[in-house]
């Protein structure tokens, strides 16, 4: 094997996946994508978890019609692929007069999905608190809402942290699905740049951006899992 050939193969590889000119040209676009991905991710985490917590608290009143509604909501959102909901909301809703930007659709759909999973996790946490805690609180005159806010939820939170973190990470990664409806997040910027440049470098940049963004999150999730050592077994 001669060295010049190896050299040229290596050259071809860097040329295709790590092309310096394209890195310079598209790093702005990728940076913009990172910003949008982060924006949606943060919004989804907040609204999704807040809504999930609210639903779990509502469920604790054990009012049948509301609980049937919550159960169905949770089951449906756990059963449907996120992409189905995204396409349905983005292409379907305008025909009945609700036109939403891709950004809004992605935020809404992912929040609802996270809310469904979060509700299940919070509800399991609430159920795990012994009945005596409810009784002690109620016997001192605290109402249902006060009991759940001051006594039950603070205890339930501990055992929801690990599963909730993992689920939140999984759902946040779905921001990449935004590319299908033209949300300018990382993947979208990267594939657009790729088709313009006819080179795999932008795609590699996008992949690296995701890894840089999510590896720390996954590592934190792993740390939380051991810190709050809690298994469902």
């Amino acid at each position: 094997m001669n060295t010049s050939e190896t050299f040229s193969r290596w050259d071809l590889f860097t040329e295709t996946f790590f092309n310096q000119r394209l890195i310079d040209e598209y790093s702005g676009a990728i940076a913009k994508g990172i910003l949008i991905t982060c924006e949606i991710a943060v919004l989804v985490v907040f609204t999704g978890i807040a809504l999930g917590l609210l639903l779990a608290m509502l469920r604790s009143y054990r009012f049948l019609p509301i609980n049937v509604f919550i159960s169905c909501f949770v089951d449906i959102l756990r059963s449907l692929p996120p992409l189905v909901l995204i396409l349905l909301a983005y292409f379907g809703l305008p025909s009945i007069g609700f036109s939403m930007s891709g950004f809004l659709v992605l935020w809404l759909v992912l929040s609802l999905i996270l809310a469904a999973f979060a509700e299940e996790i919070f509800w399991a946490g609430i159920l795990s608190i012994r009945r005596g805690q409810w009784e002690a609180a109620r016997s001192t005159g605290l109402g249902h809402t006060q009991t759940i806010v001051y006594v039950i939820i603070p205890q339930a939170i501990r055992m929801t942290v690990a599963p909730l973190t993992n689920r939140t990470i999984a759902i946040t990664k779905n921001t990449a699905l935004g590319t299908v409806i033209g949300v300018g997040e990382i993947l979208n910027q990267a594939s657009t740049a790729q088709s313009f440049s006819g080179n795999a470098t932008p795609l590699m940049m996008g992949a690296i951006a995701y890894i840089v963004l999510f590896i720390p999150v996954v590592a934190i999730g792993r740390w939380i899992e051991t810190r709050f050592a809690w298994r469902r077994i």
Binding site: Q133, A136, Q155
Partner: peptide
Amino acid sequence: IGMVFQQFNLYPH
């Protein structure tokens, strides 16, 4: 009407 329980039921948090 105060109440005291068999399992104490103090709030652990």
